[in-house]
């Protein structure tokens, strides 16, 4: 009887759990067949997610970064920032559409500048890493180099060169270049297969998470594992 008392939605916390269980069953009911129950909860989920985002936007963006600096710190010129951003909506007006381009131009300019910085800090270390691979035992090696490291490095270089060859379009692929590009394509396929395999694992983990919720939180069955 105690278990039933605890199980039933007789407290705010248990009502929350029951709503969670109901939503889970509703969303997964699509696996059986298309149904209005599923459709209702799908739309509710999308609506809730969109509505929920409004709170953090107002509190953490508009209030924190706009209203408070104007009110508390007297940074009056920020008052012009939001109206300037709203110029974007002129895009819907045929006559004054050009006004929106002022905002778009500012954004593009800022992000173009940021991208230059990102390029050097993102790709140069990778280039350095790729070019500094040890491919044979150095004659005066002071550090320990394992055979497995050498093999890994060779595999890395072969894959890198063959994939780069595949993406070289400056000349026609013939003979050895064509065969190298084909090998590169195969390596790409293996890479994409790995990503797909990981996607299956991710989706499975999401399902397991919901089943765990139903068992642990809703049915209050303490599950173990490991």
């Amino acid at each position: 009887m105690d278990w039933i008392q605890e199980f039933l939605p007789l407290s705010v916390e248990r009502i929350n759990v029951w709503i969670g269980a109901l939503c889970t069953f509703a969303i997964y009911s699509i696996l059986y067949r298309e149904n209005p129950f599923y459709r209702f909860f799908e739309h509710m989920y999308i609506g809730l997610a969109a509505g929920y985002a409004l709170g953090p936007y107002l509190v953490d963006v508009i209030y924190r970064y706009w209203w408070e600096p104007i009110r508390a710190d007297g940074i009056w010129w920020l008052a012009f920032v939001v109206p300037f951003g709203m110029y974007l909506y002129f895009i819907y007006n045929e006559k004054y559409g050009w006004v929106s381009r002022l905002v778009i131009g500012s954004l593009i300019g800022a992000y173009a500048g940021l991208t230059f910085q990102a390029f050097s800090s993102r790709y140069l270390p990778q280039l350095q890493g790729a070019l500094s691979k040890v491919l044979w035992y150095p004659p005066n090696a002071t550090g320990e180099i394992y055979l497995s490291t050498l093999i890994n490095n060779w595999i890395f270089v072969i894959i890198l060169l063959s994939v780069l060859t595949y993406f070289t379009f400056s000349f026609e692929h013939r003979g050895a270049v064509k065969r190298t590009a084909l090998v590169g394509r195969w390596f790409l396929m293996i890479g994409l297969g790995t990503i797909f395999g990981n996607t299956v694992m991710a989706r499975m983990a999401l399902l397991i998470g919901r089943v765990y919720y139903l068992l642990d939180s809703w049915l209050m069955i303490r599950v173990g594992g490991g």
Binding site: M201, M204, A205, I208, G209, V211, Y212, V223, G225, G226
Partner: peptide, 15 residues
Amino acid sequence: VGLGTRFINAIQFSH
């Protein structure tokens, strides 16, 4: 023993 440990059997057997 966290959630990862609780999930791992299900992850492996489902795969």
